[in-house]
Design a protein around this nucleic acid. Structure first.
Lengths: 254, 254
DNA sequence: CGAGGGTTTGAAGTGCATCAAATAGTGTGG
DNA sequence: CCACACTATTTGATGCACTTCAAACCCTCG
């Protein structure tokens, strides 16, 4: 049961390795971090893994929520679509992120669409179990509460950014979040995905993104070659970017 | 104790009336609605009422959260301020709304500033009690979870609106939310507060608001005189506004 | 009535979007 | 390893939306 639908491995130990890896992944999420071993086991038993290709729609907005997901690898986009076909990207998630779990506490309908944007391995868990565990276990409910609270703060921050930051500043902010709150010196990093996608994530068009990046290059002395960005002086970038935000760098959030 | 710091009334019964009114108010909030009588009583005992004038700052972002609030009357603005002095209005709240309660489940710091924008009567409750109750009572934690979930959905919606709707559409959406999800016919309503404030709430400048309202008037045939708005044909307004949103009218949220 | 705020209007500027086209990058099959 | 097809990214030209600054108007309240 549970993970037994995985393709059979040559030997037990490889299977074990995979199970341990999944266990470790779950334990690292805010949601599952403080569970008692027994409770975690219940989730492990109900978990299935699934390979999903780029482009795959996992669920649609307003659909009843049957499953929620933890990402082992790859990238997933959460977004909403208006009647006249515009798209608002809510978030883009990767390894260790949990999604689709929020719906459980309202009407049980998903409040976004979810689409794989980079081939992904997903851990699939039944929403019913989540509902049940929350009802039964107080500590789990508290975990859930902490996670939700964190999400909420994140959304509010996004809201602020959209109203207050210019396009180049939003990019700067995005880059700084990739810097792992390093405070000084030179940093080199790689853009995690498509520039078009980053643009959407930041609420702008690809062309605007390109131009805004050029402007940011001039203003803050960073160097961009393809997907590689090197930042010679973090503080300079912070100076340009973070004045238009109410958080001081390093802003310690997801 | 508790509400005993109210100015003394001429007779007991008037005091009672006030207590009953507060009790009713709390029961109508999502947070307190499903409590057992004893639990509600604990909150009632710890509650104080407070009169606060327009302009009064209730708390600041990053301040440790000592209290949270329920509004009896008046209006309160939640906002964030950037280093270079810009302001992002997160929400504007009135009678029956609860605020300042979210901080409890993270680091205990407020994530917004709160300011009274229209003379208000507030019910003040200690954050410590909230923390305690959540730890102790499972049902209360579940209530909290539902409330949080609702908030989160609300924030996501705001995010969508900001990226996808034009200024006149945002105003239209704002008006429609004041219509109490009436579906047809003519509606007359009054703007709840300052146009400058509505503008900020919708993420635009007062001038833009004024012009956008003019445009909305032309597009959707509404009539605006001062703070009075009459909408001869709701469906027409819906048609203009809600195409740029992923929710179908009537969007049933806060 | 006159002062002061909120609100509207006008003129000009800025930023982002749009459309169109050029260029760089990537993966394919030969 | 190259040529080709296809996609991502950049660039240019132009338009629209929102902002800014300045001034007028309007309304309320002392």
């Amino acid at each position: 049961m549970g993970l037994s639908d995985l393709p059979l491995e040559h030997n037990e130990s490889q299977q074990d390795v995979r199970l341990r890896e999944i266990m470790r992944l779950l334990k690292n999420t805010q949601l599952f971090s403080h569970l008692e071993p027994g409770e975690l086991a219940d989730f492990m038993d109900a978990a299935k893994t699934r390979q999903a290709e780029k482009g795959k729609i996992l669920y649609l907005q307003n659909e009843p929520s049957e499953f929620f997901y933890v990402i082992r690898s790859g990238w997933v986009k959460l977004f909403r679509e208006t009647l006249d076909g515009e798209e608002a990207v809510i978030d883009i998630l990767t390894t260790g992120h949990v999604f689709g779990e929020t719906s459980v506490f309202e009407d049980g309908l998903h409040s976004c669409n979810a689409q794989v944007v980079e081939d992904a391995q997903l851990i699939v868990l039944p929403s019913s179990l989540l509902r049940e565990k929350t009802q039964v276990s107080h500590t789990f409910a508290l975990n859930m509460l902490a996670a939700m609270s964190h999400h909420r703060r994140h959304s509010i921050e996004e809201l602020e950014h959209l109203t207050v930051q210019s396009a180049p500043q939003r990019i700067g902010c995005f880059l700084l979040r990739l810097c792992n709150s390093q405070e000084e010196g030179e940093v080199t990093l790689h853009l995690p995905y498509d520039k078009t996608l980053i643009a959407a994530r930041l609420g702008m068009k690809p062309e605007t993104f390109s131009r805004a990046l050029t402007r940011l290059r001039q203003e803050s002395d960073i160097d961009v070659k393809g997907a590689t960005v090197s930042i010679p002086d973090i503080q300079r970038l912070v100076g340009y970017t973070c004045n238009a935000c109410s958080n001081a760098y390093p802003c310690k959030d997801l």
